[in-house]
Write a protein that binds this DNA or RNA. Structure first.
Lengths: 246, 246
DNA sequence: ATGCTAGTTTGGGTCAGACCTTTGGACCAG
DNA sequence: CTGGTCCAAAGGTCTGACCCAAACTAGCAT
């Protein structure tokens, strides 16, 4: 069994043979991320890239498609169209987190757990870094909660408020994560949701209380109140033994 | 300036005309996420999809490529190759966060801020949910820190330990985020890093102290100590005015 | 029988070229 | 000022061919 077929001691680590389209994609990605291509720059048209790279149009297109999926370029058709450089935003993080949550069947409870882990910190940072513009946005979202509205409108306003707090933290990473979590919560609650007037009133009061702390730059109070708010709404939503996956 | 050129009040939201390849990609993505195609299932070969969907191979390939970038399938060449269904893992979240951090020139300070926001919560959850296997992994990482080693080895071990804590929280979302942040910190520190024996000793002591709390299921202590550890290492690393981008 | 070697098959990767569709602009008619 | 017509640029799709990689298979030589 132990047949050593090699007569030479020369050893090579397994070579990777990258696909041509990946090579191009990587090349372009580097130039984008390094800032060599600032935002909005149009990449050369596909047929132009073909002659420059000596690759086929198929390959060039695949590379561009990859970058598009990664939200590094936006591709428009038609005259004056083409691939335009874009900096990746919080949305792309949100997309991939959404895939993770859906694909892995992550329990809503886990999502909530994550929010409880993160949002108080968001609130603390918001209290530290908020601008007056941030405060206005929070108030606007709250206004939409109290008044009127369908279930859909309520959920949207609630999400807006929480994302607003994250934005006020002026930390783009946390903001991206919160956008993702909010989306997930939104869709889940949409189906599970029982939302009556009492819930609205309670939510509104909690939000206002947190917002006041943020306005007063009181980090501790902001974090503490946000924690309580989340904990309370966790109790309100039924903790389902529905899909006890992991 | 206020020229209202429209005489009609009828408003339509912009219609999207999805690309054929996106239609296919979405279709397949749904079936994957819904669990209809369990992990490891081979999708039909490209040429087979062509006859089933009546699309060209180009289009089919583009769709598959999209799914590959989203980490929903793994594509292998050669006989018995093809596209195999894969559930998205923490890595894909890490990838997109990495793009965000690099592409937006997020300051190392912001990354650290995010860690300080998240890791104490990870530690608290770890204290709640850790298994004995988790504890062993933490010890292993710490062993690698103390002994020997190049700068590279130290950083890797440190990252492993922190990811280990996240893993012990048994919250896949937090784990994914931590993997991403760790990677980012790793590369940054790699260049900036000043790491002497004293730093190693201090790091080791802090880790052990957190690990003990996790072992004892003492949530408060775990969270508190992790917070202090991060705060301390933030001071150790120079707070650079290097790239004060935003 | 054993073990290497050369085909063979299945499937992805790349290429070249044609044609379709979308979009912006220019120009013209009412 | 409005609506039509046409053109050109650029992405989107299709066809069909060929090239490579991987896994199996059949011989052939020892």
């Amino acid at each position: 069994m132990a047949t050593e077929t090699s007569r030479s001691k020369i050893r090579l680590s397994p070579l990777d043979v990258p696909k041509a389209s990946d090579v191009l994609a990587n090349e372009l990605r580097e130039k984008i991320l390094s800032g060599e291509f600032p935002e909005g720059t149009p990449l050369p048209p596909e047929r132009e890239l073909v002659v420059q790279t000596r690759m086929s149009r198929t390959t060039v297109r695949e590379a561009l498609r990859v970058l598009e999926v990664q939200n590094l370029v936006r591709i428009k058709a038609g005259r004056a169209g083409g691939a335009f450089v874009q900096r990746p935003g919080q949305d792309s993080v949100a997309d991939s987190l959404e895939l993770l949550i859906r694909g892995r069947r992550i329990r809503p409870a886990s999502v909530h757990e994550t929010r409880e882990a993160i949002e108080p910190s968001c609130a603390r940072l918001a209290a530290l870094n908020r601008t007056t513009g941030d405060l206005q946005r929070l108030e606007a979202a709250d206004a939409a909660i109290g008044s009127s509205g369908t279930l859909e409108a309520f959920l949207q306003a609630d999400v807006d408020w929480h994302v607003g707090v994250a934005t006020a933290s002026h930390n783009e990473i946390l903001t991206g994560i919160m956008i993702a979590l909010s989306r997930a919560v939104h869709t889940v609650t949409h189906t599970t949701g029982l939302v009556n007037d009492e819930v609205r009133a309670i939510t509104l009061r909690a939000h206002r209380s947190v917002a006041r702390a943020i306005k007063d730059k009181d980090q501790d109070a902001a974090g503490r109140r946000m924690g309580r708010h989340l904990h309370a709404s966790a109790d309100a939503a039924p903790a389902p033994g529905d899909q006890p996956d992991r």
